[in-house]
Design a protein around this nucleic acid. Structure first.
Lengths: 334, 334
DNA sequence: TTGTAAGCGTTATCAT
DNA sequence: ATGATAACGCTTACAA
């Protein structure tokens, strides 16, 4: 049932004719301690390691060191281009620091709780989480319990953990102003689940009202942020909508779904339907028409990793907040 | 530097007025041993656990049990709809078995080696890996070392580990026959990196030759399987290609990239350009035109998880092989 | 420059 | 029905 047993540090020590202490010193990297080992001994130890194929047991190591050197990243959705690029840029930065990153995917408080559970189990040292704010209470509690947390999302600074604050509100307003200026008088707003990212549509709706659009010209629809769900939804609501209609899709993938629905229904973009995405993923540049979208000016989320690393080095740091500005990227779909 | 210290089993024992042994028995689930603990004691223990918020330290547990109850899944690409659905279906099945799944993403032998390293470190009990065959040697070596491996991909049975064999060859041939029957005499084949999935284009090319297409009517291009790279590539090769031309994109995401390139260049699909994808992702149904693609008849890869679980229960099982049939799904793009 | 020994938190064995 | 004890593999004072 258990895997075939692997060599331990004792086997290496025996084979090299030294004590386990010496082996540990040789392997624990060239800190100042490495100097206490003679070159010759070190060489013999390394030879033995290579010959036996010795690899340190992480469980034993974590138990003794009281840290695992693993960081968890919890992204929102597999289909989200945004989560993907976050995972990629965070991973490379985390690796630069000699830690390893585990990627979990899935929004929702159950996933957040699972991730925090992993921290409680000492299975990971810290959690970088993409959140829309729905699980802030869980995160606050975990941070209060001494866990290292970095949250990324459209949220404010926190006292107990670090935040990369996606400041998308001005860009959302700019997008709505833009479509209204182009003559749109009816707007459909697409939101995923309530609590997940509905702040986007709330901001959009408020701003449209302040621009003078009557409330009954605004429709909020809930559908998951994936291409197919958005396309299906759009095929239902678009034919009935007065032209020109604006669609703020809440995500780029949804926007592409809406775009396909326009093709399927023979609607012209942007003349009949003006589409705005969210995320400004690279794919916005290849569709026909190209997709107007709003997103962060920089797509490098390595800063979240840096926050985590410095927090691991000093646990009692006050919560820091890096504001990530967003802007509207006007292309041809609106 | 280390996290605030959490309660251990000793704290629980003290608080409940019992020995650590008893706490462990109470918590290790109601197997047949639970009977040896009196109801009253068990209740007191559970109360103490709840009060202190005790959670078992996974490192200590893994060290003692010599297993981590974690399974690794290594998928090819974040952008791959196929990897995504594999990860999802495998995770839910793995969880049903009381294990947890860690998802890694990234093709290439370095990633495979990193995953195997995790096995060597006792950080995980088994590895489910999506592979095109390029890293079979590494996997064989790991399996020979006693690790539990399940590989999913267009590969054959293996003696030392389990395989879910994606039998896509007949479907690829069917797809090529289909486009040729429709009058295509020139075909462009898109492959990712050599060694990753080039078997797809090799099979396609061989079959096209056997159908009588001259070799210089066949072009193989290498570009990563993502929408943007494929679109850029297609924008370059399509205008020069004789019409009608067939494109076997090697993946659905690439196919969508090619489709956008056709729109951008004013080429009609399927009349000027016939496009075939690979993977048969749900998105094939929403594009205009819908995407002809080949893929597995079933998208449930829970069977890979089942293989893993049974292998963990009995390590010396011979390598099993489940063949996953593919077929061509003809839609409007070819 | 190297070795001895204690301890990280758990679970299994063996007593009681 | 419960408890004492040893062991899992590693790191690190401290001793030599």
């Amino acid at each position: 049932m258990p895997a075939r047993s692997r060599p331990t540090i004792l086997d290496v020590a025996r084979s090299a004719g030294v004590s386990p202490t010496t082996v540990s010193y040789v392997l624990s990297g060239p800190k100042e301690r490495a100097s206490r080992i003679s070159d010759d001994t070190a060489k013999r130890v390394r030879a033995a390691v290579a010959e036996l194929g010795y690899v340190a047991n992480q469980s034993a190591r974590s138990l003794r060191l009281r840290r695992s050197n693993r960081i968890l990243f919890l992204g929102n959705r597999f289909t989200s281009l945004f989560s993907q690029s976050m995972a990629t840029s965070i991973e490379s930065r985390i690796n630069q620091h000699g830690l390893s990153l585990d990627v979990l995917i899935g929004a929702g408080s159950d996933q957040v709780r699972r991730a925090i559970q992993a921290l409680n189990q000492h299975a990971a040292d810290g959690l970088i989480v993409e959140t829309a704010g729905g699980d802030l209470d869980d995160l606050r509690e975990a941070a209060a319990a001494g866990h290292a947390i970095v949250a990324v999302g459209p949220i404010e600074a926190e006292p107990l953990f670090d935040v990369v604050s996606n400041d998308d509100v001005p860009a959302i307003r700019a997008a709505m102003s833009h479509v209204v200026h182009r003559g749109v008088r009816h707007v459909v707003l697409l939101a995923a689940q309530p609590g997940l990212d509905d702040h986007r549509v709330l901001v959009a709706r408020d701003h449209l009202v302040s621009l003078g659009l009557p409330d009954d010209h605004l429709t909020t629809l809930h559908c998951p942020h994936d291409r197919i769900a958005a396309c299906d939804a759009a095929k239902r609501f678009l034919p009935a909508a007065p032209s020109p209609v604006g669609v703020y899709a809440g995500s780029d993938v949804s926007a592409f779904g809406v775009l396909w629905a326009c093709y399927a229904r023979g609607l012209r973009v942007p003349d009949d339907v003006a589409i705005v995405g969210h995320g400004n993923s690279p794919e916005t540049g290849i569709s026909v028409p190209t997709l107007t979208s709003l997103g962060p000016i920089s797509h490098d989320f390595g800063k979240a990793a840096d926050l985590m690393v410095s927090r691991l080095a000093q646990r009692d740091l006050p919560g820091r907040c890096i504001v990530e500005p967003y802007r509207l990227f006007v292309r041809d779909s609106a």
